[in-house]
Amino acid sequence: MLQLEHVEKRLGNFKLSDITFELPKGYILGLIGKNGAGKTTLLHLLMGLYTADAGKIRVLGDDPKTQEVRVKRRIGWVLSEDLFGAGQTLGGNADMYGKYYPEYSRAKFLEYCGRFGLSPKRLLGKCSKGEKLKFQFAFALSHAPKLLLLDEPTASFDPEFRDEFFKVITEFISDGERGVVLATHLTADLDRYADYVAMLEQGKLVFCMERCELADAYRIVSGEEYKLRLLGDKVLSVESGKYGAKAFVKHSRRMAYDTALCVSVPTLEEIMFYHAMWQNGAGFTGNLRKG
């Protein structure tokens, strides 16, 4: 579905470097990282808006630059910015841009509008941010894409629709032939739905692995600091408090922990947070960060 090999892209002072990962068909990839980590740039590369300076990109088996039309026909996108014409109705916008897609179906668009509680006769400019994103989502689904590229859509959705959103996405990939890339920093949803997780930090890929593999890769260990020190170089970052310390540890199945230590599986949010600390040198070898 997606293949990236040593992809590099420079945009002004920002550089996306050495991005390598794959996403097989039928899965959801969660793209996480702080603001400015490079998530949107990476999505722009996948959409064919940017050309990579180096490396190889394959989207649905094709190069998004040389096979631009073929790739774009099979991609659905939702971007967290104001797209489409504000002076037109939702239906008008969908029809206007839908004509570029051979598979566009107005009936399908109307069906999703009904499902998402949108009126196709409403002016886009009068819609709230969340409604605009719902419209983009309905439009993306209306031309039967094989791959959905979603850039931070969930932040503007109400909790009720967020459930519906993930329900639709799960239905979308259920035939095993399609895929979803979802960039977000709301990691709680990815904890539930993502099959793969890729994390970007300052333009670099920190990891890209299966969610269950990721759950095995790290641990949060809390306890007395001297006991945490015994874990040695497995400790990536440490947060010291008044009554003990909390360490972010690279875990392996063979690792044994002192019974006095409290070990837990980190959430994606914790992984993001502690990775950032690690990058800033907050391990025992670096500057100890006071919590």
Binding site: M47, L49, E68, V69, R70, V71, K72, R73, W77, L79, E81, L83, F84, G85, Y97, Y100, Y101
Partner: peptide, 12 residues
């Protein structure tokens, strides 16, 4: 020009 124009399947 609307960004959608670049996201739609149009060739150069």
């Amino acid at each position: 020009v609307n960004k959608v124009f670049y996201l739609c399947p149009l060739s150069g």
